[in-house]
């Protein structure tokens, strides 16, 4: 291939056997099976926690009952938040990897999440009394600006090597983080900053997670544009030939990613590397046609976070 810079999309490990196996399976049946498994584990997760809530308690639905209140106020929101965050972050990582044509670029390795955290801090310092929605908008704007800055940096690289690009992203994220910590220190917000930016579902309660439904919507939107993302990922000329507006789709997709990152950072905190690992594992098996891979990525991401949450809950059970 003469197009050396275009090569990075090639996955690190080609696994012909797995790919053929995945393709030989009935896609719909596989999706249904995965969804069923996810549903089963989700159901189980609803009954894991300090308070003993059993399905029987729910059958005797009594609003004043402690168990029912725990279930409605904490367990269901927790599960919804996990599923929404896991799927949305994985999908946005997948989109970013495709658009930037680099398997190692994800919101956490391109400064997007760090910028969103900075945005959240700025919003808290100067717009402390503002609504969560405004804070979230500021975080999204910062995430977008950070992503664009990262792209501008990468385009100035003399050797945009597949490894150098994410390294630059990680360093860039580090710089943003340093700035964030500096301002947090100056305003005595370091502890709050840590509390905000560490991904955490133990504090998810009814009334405090609903903004996450936005990212659920964005995930559905991204599925509608999956084909265009794949085409843009195959290069500008390829996309233009097929009548796709390259710039529009590229920046639209990155805006989508920035929105998801911003919302997740504000509501849940940052979950590093979710958007990096899950899409890589899924594309390794299923290929890179987003229409095919995106649902599987969403399900796997949700499952991954859910499994982590259950595992972490076992040794130290919070509510």
């Amino acid at each position: 291939m003469s197009g050396a810079p275009a090569a990075p999309l090639a996955s690190a490990a080609a696994s012909p056997g797995l790919f053929d196996w995945a393709r030989s399976m009935n896609g719909t049946a596989l999706t249904v099976a995965a969804l069923a498994l996810l549903a089963a584990v989700s159901f189980a997760s609803l009954f894991i926690g300090v308070s003993d809530v059993t399905p029987l308690d729910l059958l005797r639905w009594d609003n004043s009952d402690h168990q029912v209140r725990v279930f409605v106020e904490s367990r269901v929101p927790r599960l919804a938040a996990i599923l929404l965050t896991g799927s949305a972050m994985s999908v946005s990582g997948l989109i970013m990897q495709t658009l930037v044509r680099n398997r190692f670029v994800a919101p956490s390795t391109s400064g997007t999440i760090s910028s969103a955290s900075l945005g959240l801090l700025v919003a808290s310092i100067w717009f402390g009394s503002a609504s969560v929605f405004l804070k979230m908008s500021i975080a999204v704007a910062f995430a977008m600006a950070g992503t664009l800055l990262f792209l501008a940096l990468v385009q100035r690289l003399r050797h945009p090597d597949i490894i150098v690009v994410p390294l630059v992203g990680i360093m860039f994220g580090g710089v943003i983080q340093a700035i964030t910590v500096y301002f947090a220190l100056r305003h005595d917000l370091l502890q709050s900053l840590n509390a905000w930016t560490n991904g955490d579902f133990s504090g998810t309660l009814r009334g405090r997670y609903e903004l996450l439904y936005i990212v659920g919507g964005l995930t559905i939107v991204s599925y509608l544009f999956a084909n265009r993302f794949t085409l843009v990922g195959m290069g500008r000329e390829f996309a233009v030939n097929l009548g796709v507006h390259y710039e529009r789709v590229l920046y639209g997709g990155l805006t989508l990613v920035a929105c998801v990152s911003g919302v997740v950072v504000v509501v849940v905190g940052s979950i590093p590397f979710l958007g990096l690992i899950v899409p890589n594992l899924v594309t390794m098996v299923m290929g890179e046609n987003l229409r095919q891979v995106l649902p599987a990525t969403a399900i796997s991401g949700a499952f991954f976070v859910l499994a982590c949450d259950i595992l972490s809950r076992d040794p130290a059970l919070p509510l």
Binding site: A10, T230, G235, L242, V244, E288
Partner: peptide, 22 residues
């Protein structure tokens, strides 16, 4: 662009990336 894409196609060597699609 979408109208043109039904009239004219251009294939360049550089865009033939080895993407994992069939």
């Amino acid at each position: 662009s979408a109208v043109l894409a039904r009239r004219l196609s251009i294939l360049r060597q550089e865009n033939q990336v080895a993407v994992r699609i069939t």
